[in-house]
């Protein structure tokens, strides 16, 4: 493997929301900046760049992770999912997104994409989560608008609907 030199841009190949994409990155480019400025996926927001606020959370190979604590060059060959990949169709929201809308789970919406990516990953593996478990997942995110209560309601409602759909299927 050649050493990628500082100050030079290097091609990267990865999957973004199921599609193969490529882009150029200096070794030091953060995944958050790569997604936003190189790939134009601005749904991922940047709130602190030290891994605390959670706004930049995306899914890397299925697991929620901070895009600001990841270098773009580490993502060669990885599968990344961002908030742009949640909706099943351009005119249809996912169950989770719909629940956020219904329960006013967002106000300014800045922290929302990160929260959705965490919850989406969590709800895939936990069909019937209790409130405490959801609070724990949410504790990796800071929201300054909602006071979390509407987010929690939205998450619980989404979990219920997802469980129901899984049961029906």
């Amino acid at each position: 493997m050649p050493r990628l030199k500082a100050g030079q841009r290097h091609w990267l190949h990865l999957t973004l929301n199921g599609k193969a994409v490529e882009g150029e990155a200096e070794p030091r480019l953060l995944l958050s900046d790569f997604l936003r400025y190189e790939l134009g996926a601005t749904g991922t927001h940047v709130g602190c760049e030290h891994g605390v606020c959670g706004a930049c959370t995306v899914q890397i190979d299925g697991a929620p992770a901070r895009a600001c604590l990841t270098l773009a060059v580490q993502m060669e060959g990885a599968a990344i999912r961002t908030v742009e990949g949640l909706a099943p169709a351009p005119d249809r929201l996912s169950i989770l997104q719909e629940a956020f809308r219904e329960h006013h789970g967002l106000q300014c919406g800045f922290c929302t994409p990160g929260i959705l990516m965490s919850l989406d990953a969590f709800l895939r593996e936990h069909r019937r989560p209790n409130e405490a478990a959801l609070r724990e997942v949410l504790s990796g995110h800071l929201c300054r608008c909602t006071g979390y209560a509407p987010i929690l309601r939205a998450a619980l409602a989404a979990a219920e609907r997802l469980a129901k759909e899984a049961g029906d299927a």
């Binding site: 493997m1 070794p27 030091r28």
Partner: peptide, 21 residues
């Protein structure tokens, strides 16, 4: 709040990593 420049080596083997270090 962006990192200062650095080189990046994606080590495929332990030997490669140890040599670089």
């Amino acid at each position: 709040m962006k990192p200062a420049p650095f080189d990046y080596l994606r080590a495929e083997t332990l030997e490669e990593a140890l040599e670089a270090l």
